[in-house]
Design a binder for these strands. Structure first.
Lengths: 164, 164
DNA sequence: ATCGTTGTTTAAAACGTTCTAAACGATTAT
DNA sequence: ATAATCGTTTAGAACGTTTTAAACAACGAT
């Protein structure tokens, strides 16, 4: 391959990695996807080892993660008994899917936290001083705001899905 | 303070930390904000050391980061020469601000990458084989998609700001 | 002037995460 | 059957990030 093309590709892969990383997504996984995305043909594990200069184990592990995300699939190449991998060409879909599942998961955790919080302060109400009760009131108001935000985030997410 | 209230508070703080962390935001900074957010009065560095069981230096460093984000401000407490800190009570604003600046920064980096990419493949065009030229064409199409996504993300961000 | 209080800086330690190398198991070719 | 080819697993190494402890600087009180 032409040298400058390879440089351009590397820039792309590097940049996608950094972008993902800054949003809490594993840098290497993103790079792996980027390489497959740019490639005009499916790549084998060996080829990925070569292009990314990473260990077989590392690639194997993270390719499976990408498969779980639905971002990459295993394709059959006639005449070879190697596994070949192909990126889903619809980047938007991949990103939105990941974003949605991530947001859903986190919002679920926020819900749990809110429940636990309510239980804890509720169960203690009887043994409280007046001062404590004031604190509880203030906590509840603040928690309500968080809950509102959670609902808004969920709504925004489904809006985004239609928009994208 | 009542024991169960403290437990509830800790649950909250822990949860906010995890939430932030999973979106690439420093866990401790988020926890720091959470403690200040729940508090009905400004807290001093010493009090934060006590509540979070962390070192003075750590708190000092990360409080300044929160100040930079505009999420926390230094307030004067009559009769004390300590610094006291107060969380901006508008969580939405804080979150959206952070999100916006983060997205802006990253989208800027994507723009830079796209420019570099274009330059590299452009400058090499003359010395290319037919095969290379085909590759370039495919790269350019894929890059175009990324660019579209970048623009959409930027637009979505400003939409979100109005929505929130 | 000296001491005590307060916040900041920094070098090194601690920590969690990611990566690798090597062993392994499974499968196919000879 | 044996050897070669592949992908997976895993224990430990490597790495970057975060945290700490201690020294420090700034400031006010005595």
């Amino acid at each position: 391959m032409h040298n400058k093309l390879e440089m351009a590709q590397d820039k792309f892969v590097e940049s996608i990695g950094k972008l993902a990383s800054s949003f809490g997504v594993n840098q290497f996984i993103a790079q792996l996807y980027a390489v497959l995305y740019l490639s005009d043909k499916p790549l084998s594990l060996d080829e990925l080892v070569e292009r990314l200069k990473a260990s077989k184990g590392n690639i194997s592990l993270n390719i499976r993660e990408l498969e779980n995300w639905g971002a990459v699939k295993n394709v059959w190449v006639k005449g070879s008994r190697k596994d070949y991998y192909e990126a889903d060409p619809d980047v938007r879909k991949v990103v939105v899917n990941k974003l949605r599942s991530s947001v859903q998961k986190r919002m679920g955790q926020v819900s749990n936290m809110i429940e636990e919080f309510k239980e804890l302060v509720g169960s203690a109400e009887s043994e409280m001083t007046a001062e404590d009760k004031k604190t509880v009131k203030s906590y509840q108001e603040k928690l309500k705001k968080i809950e509102d935000m959670k609902n808004l985030a969920t709504k925004a997410m489904s809006l985004a899905e239609k928009l994208f």
